[in-house]
């Protein structure tokens, strides 16, 4: 891509009359917004790591929580979220291809690639909704929340024996008394989490929700720009820089997901 525009005198970059960055005002501001947004996401993920370290023994393993895959039975850890990652990377590729087509003033190219980007974004948002549904809904048996708040997992569907977070299995009369004083919980919300500490659910809803909001608003913004492309606004303007700017935002959303994927699902 074009580096230094030939019209810039390198010795006079800060002399006024030209952007010393050789980048337009709108693009600079988009970058600075993305930096500030990156701070928010970094703070969220770092505080996630902090609390996880605090409750290390009670923290659920994401691999054991998110095991569903549409139309397939049984456990498929990581598979679904890997597919979501693939969809988002794919939509990042179509976005950068739209930007490239814009540089050639190829309107039909921009239309095609932006449409595919929007479709990819919608599939991703839908997948996230599906994942949330399963997390909120929970497992078939649920779990036992003991009187002190600890979550114990049932040994089987008979629900007369359970395993504590430290690995001890309780059964018989002692277990019956603890079951009596505890409550059965299903799924997860902001105060209850059948997989472990409620904080895990809070972070999950907040971080993936915040990211999902970004994806959704990205789809909306992409759609607005897409309509402008269809109307020929940028053809008249002589350049497709708006596509580039929303492209920056869209890649950022993909970038954040790369980190969420690692810190939430892999580690």
């Amino acid at each position: 891509m074009a580096g230094i525009s030939p019209s810039v005198d390198k010795n006079n970059l800060w002399g006024g009359g030209f952007s010393p960055f050789n980048v337009s005002y709108g693009k600079i501001m988009m970058w600075f917004f993305l930096v500030s947004d990156a701070f928010t996401f970094s703070a969220l993920l770092i505080s996630y790591g902090f609390m996880r370290h605090r409750f290390e023994e009670l923290w659920p393993v994401a691999e054991e929580v998110f095991t569903h895959f549409p139309f397939l039975h049984g456990d498929h850890p990581l598979l679904y979220v890997a597919l979501m990652t693939f969809i988002l990377i794919m939509s990042s590729v179509t976005m950068v291809l739209a930007v490239e087509a814009g540089h050639r003033m190829n309107r039909n190219g921009v239309i095609l690639w932006m449409a595919l980007t929007i479709v990819g974004g919608l599939i991703f948002v839908g997948s996230q909704a599906w994942e949330w549904y399963h997390f909120i809904h929970g497992t078939e048996w649920g779990a036992l929340q003991l009187a002190d708040g600890t979550i114990a997992q049932w040994v089987d569907g008979a629900k007369n024996a359970f395993t504590l977070p430290n690995g001890t299995t309780m059964s018989g009369a002692e277990a019956a008394a603890m079951i009596q004083s505890g409550t059965e919980v299903y799924g997860a919300n902001l105060t209850v989490n059948e997989y472990g500490v409620p904080l895990f659910g809070d972070f999950f809803f907040f971080i993936t929700g915040f990211h999902g909001t970004h994806v959704f608003s990205g789809v909306v913004i992409n759609f607005i720009i897409f309509v402008n492309v269809l109307k020929g606004t940028y053809e008249k303007r002589g350049h497709y820089e708006m596509v580039e700017k929303v492209g920056l935002y869209w890649h950022f959303v993909d970038l954040v997901w790369v980190f969420v994927f690692t810190f939430f699902y892999l580690i």
Partner: peptide
């Protein structure tokens, strides 16, 4: 509004090279 001065354009030849780079990066990410 000096946007037009910084807006980037390129021809077919350069576009071909760029699309190649884009797909290489895609394979790396995948």
């Amino acid at each position: 509004d000096r946007t037009a001065e910084y807006a980037q354009h390129h021809g077919e030849e350069e576009g071909k090279k760029m699309r190649k780079t884009i797909w290489i990066i895609f394979w790396v990410l995948l």
